[in-house]
Amino acid sequence: MLLPWNVSAAAQEASVSDESSSMTDEDESVDMEEYIFGHISDAYEWHIATWKGEEIAIPLPCIVFSDGIKVFSSRKLEHGASYKGLRIAAAGEPHEGKIVRVSDGSRPFDISITKNVLGLLFDSILLIVLILLCSRWYRRHDVLKEAPGGIAGLLEPVIVMIEQDVIKDAVGPEYRKYSPYLLTAFFFILINNLMGIFPFFPGGANITGNIAVTLVLAMFTFFMVNLFGNKHYWKDILWPDVPIFLKAIPIMPAIEIIGMFTKPFSLMIRLFANMLAGHIMLLSTIAVIFLTAKMGPVLNGSLGFVSVLFGIFLDCLELLVAFIQAYVFTMLSSVFIGLAHQHPEKETN
C-alpha cells in the first residue's frame, strides 16, 4: 500500500483536518510513524483510501480462539470498539494493533484473515494460475515442434534461468528433486515482492517485508536442507574432520549446529529487511511532499518535484530488488541444499 494513491488520500486527510477547526495543532501535522507503520504493518482491515474524511477500507474476517472460536467482521472492532470481549490494542500497549482480550490485555490464538493473509491468498492464486497456464501450454503442445508463446514464452526463460543457472549449479547432480521447491520459492517471493510494489489493491501489502512470512519461507528451506541431508552432511556437523580436542569438548559440533540455524535465519532476515527497507524508503520519499506542505509553496513544490523524481528512481530500484531478493533467496537455499548433498570424494582437502 505504498503509494501515490494512498498518499494522495493521506493528503486529503491532511487537508480535511486542516479545514476542521476542532482538530488540535498536533493532529494537523502528518503523523509520520502512523503513516509509515500503517503502510508496512499487517492490519485487520484493508485500508484503501480516505476520501473526504470517510475511510474506504475492506473489512476482513477475524477468526479468534478465545473461549471457543469466534468469527466476525473487523468492522466490529473499528475505532477501539470491543466485541465479544475482544478489542484491538491501542498504541503504546504491549500487543499494539493486535486483537487482545478486553479483560487482561492478553493475546488470544488469532488466525484472522488479515491484510497480509488476503494479499498472500491473492498473490498465490495469481501465481498458481500463471504457472498452471504455463504448464498447460506444455501439456497441450508438442514441445519439439512449437516454440512457446504467451505466458509460457514469458515464464520459460525465467524458469530455465533459475533451474539451469542457479539450482543445477548450486545443488549438484540431485537437483531435480529440489527444483520444484526452489522454483516455487523463487516465484512465490518474486510475485509477492512485485505485488508489494504495486500501489493499488490487491497489491501494496507488505508481505515479504513481514517477518512471519520470511520465517516460514526460511523454515521450509531449513527442512529441505536437513530432512534430506546425506550421511556426510551429518558427519560434518557432528564429527567434523578437525583435531580431536575440538571435538572432545564439542566446540566444532556446537558451532556447526548453530550454523544449521543461522543459515535459514540469515535468509529470513535478509529478505525481510530488504523488502521492509525498500518500502520504508519509498514511503519516506513520498512523505517529504506532505512534511513540506506547511513550508510554503516554493519549498513544497521544489522538494515535491525532487521527491517524485527520487520516488521514480526508488520504484525502479525496488523492481530490481524484488527480483534480486527472490534470486538470492533461491540461490542461497540451493547452496545450502547442495552443501547437504556433498560427497566426500569430491572434496579437495
Binding site: I40, I113, S124, I128, F188, I211, L276
Partner: peptide, 20 residues
Amino acid sequence: SLITPDIGLIFWMVVIFGVV
C-alpha cells in the same frame, strides 16, 4: 511488532505456501 512474527500469519503462511 515489526520483528515479532505473528502466530496467525505464520499459520496462514504455512497453509498457503504449503498448498502453493
